[in-house]
Design a protein around this nucleic acid. Structure first.
Lengths: 345, 345
DNA sequence: TAATGGCACTCTCGCTTTGAGAGTGCTAAT
DNA sequence: ATTAGCACTCTCAAAGCGAGAGTGCCATTA
């Protein structure tokens, strides 16, 4: 593939920018009139021809304007990557929202999803911070009614899971507290494998709870990500891509079914670092449902301790200029929150 | 308004049923041919004329078929209400899903939303069980890192809230446990007002935590409902009502913004009992965004202790015959779960 | 007297036609 | 190397048209 001349570069970017705004094929004449480049439509035509030849542009029909190809978008995005910081005023607004939000992972996730969706006008997705090797931190047993007991299990990464147990017989709160306290000193800091390897306990209650804890920790360790939060589903509904084609609607379905979404996140980010930013354009041949969509993804958190994902889905002609810096900024922000608040000792 | 003759009743129901399936205005000829009522199209025409006169049907244009009016749907639904049990096989399937789900309010809510959405092919919404007068049950303080402390607060109704606190100085886990234990015996079973009326504590740490607990409980008491779960947003996307009109899309937006949704739930169910079932048709003049939609709503739980809402949103011609029994059944099921598991002593 | 068959009329919807507009490629002139 | 000009192509919106479906009304029937 030959190099682009300087003029072709600026032209290409101009075309894509115009198309992102208007959603309409852009022609040489229109281009020459609206932006005052010192070039006639004929010259532009020639350059457009060249860009089409090289695979950056495409004509929906003979003699309609040009539309960017996936390759074109990819070039466009690669230009975005370097520059593109979020304006300081917006940064401040977002930080402020986090600052005055109710503290707690759950609220931060919701807020992050909401901010991403609003800023980018796309569909956002955020996964809660998650550790691959869950370490035990603390358990609490609270008697609720009869044989029912509420168990709250806290992992070292900050993950919390609660569930309701039904014991074989009624047990006093006092005895529950003793069991919890024994387990807490016994298991502190242990990973799930170490716990499973422990000899069984003499006390039946202790042993029962221990089994359940092991199950729960295993479940947490096995899942590839923390809980998934999304927002902004309705943002894209008015976009022409979604109003018409069924393809795009299926992409939304993908986002509603958590299991497939997890799969997607796992497979695309397996080799992406915290701080890095990844843009999937048109499903990259892998995801049939995403043929008309793009996704901007980033990983956040503290590598080795607790990390999560966040991203934005939109039509392929989404506003990368808004989305990319926002995703990057929110990822940094969440990383800070994680390292400040969640990392256990 | 005059009474409907028996024949008019069956005709009206037949027309509405056909329209719900086909989404097309239904004409006399079509009706006479497809269903073998022993009547000619001409007779049907006369009856349709009468039904139109009485306000149950409407013609989109002169000489197109008839379409039900809101009044028509209302009559149709009133017929549904009495009969309409969910088939035993489906009941069994749903019960089974709940039985083998991970225990815990959070999972039940998610599952309920999912079941409702799938069965009804509409958008579902479920709110977690919520008590108006929150009563203290238990607090737990877990040191995470430095001055950060994870606080888990359990109310008597079963509601759990967690948040991360930043203390003024580093405090040992031991001292945190002592504080928690002191507060647990002091506050057990008290309502938020009683707690606020307590004299302040000598120990600074105790007092700080107490203040935060009060705030948190007040926040829980004030909100009109528990957390909101939805599912099936994409179910309705292919319905013609949503594909075309912007109205219907705005209804979805309503469902995404939790605050307005809470408002809606609060205002519509203020006088509905547990076990009762409410059907809002076309927004009932109150909700502009819902002009083209219907909502089937029910309240579940144990009155006075903990109750929540669940419902389904769909186009006005949604399948009431599937939705109504499903909502009713799931409401009963959740009520049982609540009374079995959540009610404190 | 209630139900029906027949008829004239209306309105939508899908089809084709048509002309304007926008865009293109190519070539000759600057 | 750039540009003006030209012939050509293709889409899109408006207009015209006929088929189909539905209606209301009236005379007839059982």
């Amino acid at each position: 593939m030959t190099e682009l001349t300087e003029r072709q570069k600026t032209l290409l970017i101009l075309i894509i920018r115009d198309y992102i705004e208007s959603a309409q094929p852009v022609g040489s004449k229109r281009l020459a009139e609206h932006y005052n480049i010192g070039l006639s439509s004929a010259t532009i035509r020639n350059e457009m021809g060249a860009l089409t030849e090289m695979g950056y542009l495409r004509q929906p029909h003979t003699s309609a304007g040009r539309v960017p190809t996936e390759e074109g978008y990819r070039y466009f995005v690669s230009q975005m990557m370097n520059q593109a910081e979020l304006p300081a005023s917006i940064q401040a607004t977002i930080s402020h929202q986090f600052y005055q939000a109710r503290p707690g992972v759950e609220h931060w996730m919701t807020l992050a999803a909401s901010v991403l969706a609003n800023q980018s006008q796309g569909v956002s997705v955020v996964t809660a911070p998650h550790t691959e090797k869950a370490k035990y931190k603390h358990v609490e047993l609270i008697s609720t009614q009869g044989r029912q007991v509420l168990m709250v299990l806290v992992m070292a990464g900050g993950e919390v899971s609660q569930q309701i147990l039904t014991l074989a017989e009624r047990v006093s709160q006092e005895r529950l507290s003793q069991t919890a306290s024994r387990l807490n000193s016994l298991l502190a800091g242990l990973a799930v494998d170490a716990i499973a390897a422990l000899p069984s306990r003499a006390d039946t209650l202790d042993q029962d709870i221990l089994t359940i804890i092991t199950q729960d920790m295993r479940r947490t360790s096995e899942s590839v990500s923390g809980e998934i939060y999304t927002d902004g589903l309705t943002n894209v509904l008015s976009e022409p891509e979604f109003a018409e084609s069924d393809d795009a609607r299926r992409a939304l379905k993908l986002f509603e079914e958590r299991s497939t979404l997890q799969d997607l996140l796992a497979r695309t980010t397996i080799n992406s670092n915290v701080g890095g930013l990844q843009v999937l354009i048109g499903g990259e041949g892998e995801w049939e449902e995403l043929r008309q969509c793009s996704i901007v993804l980033a990983r956040y958190g503290v590598p080795g301790m607790a990390t999560g994902m966040l991203g934005v889905l939109g039509p392929m002609r989404m506003s990368y200029a808004r989305t990319i810096p926002t995703v990057r900024f929110v990822a940094r922000l969440l990383s800070d929150l994680v390292s400040d608040n969640i990392v256990g000792e």
